[in-house]
């Protein structure tokens, strides 16, 4: 069992291979469709992004509201490919890892390889299970986006499979998009 801690160091990422099972602890940031669209505008207009994006891990997730007495509601990954068009700009800005579900575009794979970043797969459809791995939650930006707001999550032993490693190996190679 391999354990890793955020913020991830270059050596941590280098040692990961597509298909590895790892347990992540530390800080990650949620961002999905609308947050990505907003961040892309911020980057394009050279405006200050509302949180320090350097060396961060972005989690494609929009949780259910937190029930009373619970840190967070159900919080599994959403489909990563919808974020593909925005991902290269975020990697350029310093994002080192992404967590989501499903395949990525060839372009994203190339960026991951070029910038030595990594793409993780979280147990898809297992939002209740993953909720128990979140220890703290804090609103960071875009409150008006509701479930699509950017949250800072502190996770402990969050189970992940390496989807695309820093060499560009893809766990989904055999069922890759034909495009």
């Amino acid at each position: 069992m391999k354990k890793i801690t955020a913020p991830l160091k270059k050596e941590d990422i280098k040692g990961l291979r597509a298909g590895d099972l790892v347990y992540l602890s530390g800080i990650i940031y949620t961002a999905r469709d609308q947050a990505h669209k907003k961040l892309a505008v911020f980057i394009k207009r050279n405006r200050k992004i509302p949180f320090d994006i350097k060396n961060t891990i972005i989690y494609y997730c929009g949780p259910t509201p937190s029930p009373e007495g619970k840190v967070i509601g159900s919080c599994g990954p959403t489909t990563s490919s919808r974020m593909d068009e925005f991902t290269p700009a975020l990697i350029r800005k310093g994002v080192v890892a992404m967590i989501g579900k499903g395949r990525r575009s060839r372009r994203v794979r190339e960026f991951i390889k070029r910038y030595k970043s990594v793409y993780f797969l979280a147990p898809s459809g297992c939002g209740a299970y993953l909720a128990l791995k979140v220890k703290k939650k804090r609103l960071v930006a875009f409150k008006n986006l509701g479930p699509e707001a950017i949250l800072e999550l502190e996770v402990e032993n969050f189970p992940l499979i390496v989807g695309i490693d820093s060499r560009g190996n893809d766990v989904y190679q055999r069922i890759a998009y034909s495009v």
Partner: peptide, 12 residues
Amino acid sequence: IARKEKLALCQD
């Protein structure tokens, strides 16, 4: 866990 904790099976 979803059943026991009354957490949605999936966040979607």
